[in-house]
Design a protein around this nucleic acid. Sequence first.
DNA 1: CTCGGATGTCTAGCAGTGCTAGGCTCGAGT
DNA 2: ACTCGAGCCTAGCACTGCTAGACATCCGAG
Lengths: 192, 192
Amino acid sequence: MSVQERKQRERADRERLIVATARELAEQQGWDAVTTRRLAERIEYSQPVLYSHFRGKREIIGAVALEGAAEMAVAMRVATAAADTPRERVAALAHAYLDFADRNPAVYDALFQLDGGLAYAQEDTPEQLKDAFAALVETLGEVAGDGVHPELFTEVFWASLHGIATLTRSRRLLPEDAEKRLELLVDRLAVF
Amino acid sequence: MSVQERKQRERADRERLIVATARELAEQQGWDAVTTRRLAERIEYSQPVLYSHFRGKREIIGAVALEGAAEMAVAMRVATAAADTPRERVAALAHAYLDFADRNPAVYDALFQLDGGLAYAQEDTPEQLKDAFAALVETLGEVAGDGVHPELFTEVFWASLHGIATLTRSRRLLPEDAEKRLELLVDRLAVF
DNA sequence: CTCGGATGTCTAGCAGTGCTAGGCTCGAGT
DNA sequence: ACTCGAGCCTAGCACTGCTAGACATCCGAG
């Protein structure tokens, strides 16, 4: 019995190692560099071992995304907790969001650009994703304005942040005016 | 002399054929399906011919993007021309933008998601891209509000539309409330 | 304490990718 | 009429995600 438990524990450890290594490799050299061969080599197992944990590369991306969603939710809640006024909270949230995207581009891609095989905005959406969205609603709901659904407002605000994040990173928007753009967005969208 | 001219013309024709075929294939089956082999087969030449026109797949994506940018600029100008008030113009522009993204997902990806090797927001940015942005500024500049740079405002509005377009297409936002989101965005961001 | 069998892992390979070296063919210019 | 170069193709490289099948290792029953 305890032998089986040990094996299960070791398996779970290895799975965590795979996800952590994939994430590390993706952050270092981009997701294109995360090949099954390279990943297998880094964890010091052969490729088929990856497939005994995940159906394929897509599921590995999905696992990194879930890990990232949880971290992002924490980061956003920490950032908003210190702020006193609704306005400061929204600004802090927006900054925290873009900051996370900037510091963890590979994780951000796994979450919002790549296909990790995850369901979004549905009943069977993983808890981590629901909770990350909930973290947004907590701060944005109070500035949605009269007669506007908090969730709908949050979606619009989130989409705007997402657009800024992705266009800036792909150098389609110059990073210089980032701060001004963010100010404008917060001032116009939110109702204080 | 006329022989050389004919050859140049034929070369240009073939180049257009390559771009059109790549675009068609991408719209039909997605950019992943646009492989050099399949593309070569469709134009009834061997793969190396592609490389006598373009440095690689990236440049082909770039060519499709430029073609798309020109079309998008036209579509946005046509949509806004018919509207009388600033408010109607902005709404028409936003609809035209999302409509284009929806109807030409592969072209939209070439423009704003994939790497086509193009420079954005710089001096050496291709004319087609500058003009597409100019088309946005033409309508959005007049609703930027006092003391707000028209270009900066346009960037923010564009980024928001981009976020909505990409998140909706990747099913991270449900398409049901698309219209409501757009209304909210227009009402809040623009100053009439 | 031995041994059968399941569990776990690896090697080798498939079909596909972007891209290129080298040779062949055919037609243009002398 | 002949040469020679432009233009094109075949074949191949190193890589991708993924998998079949062989092999070893270790667990539990007798």
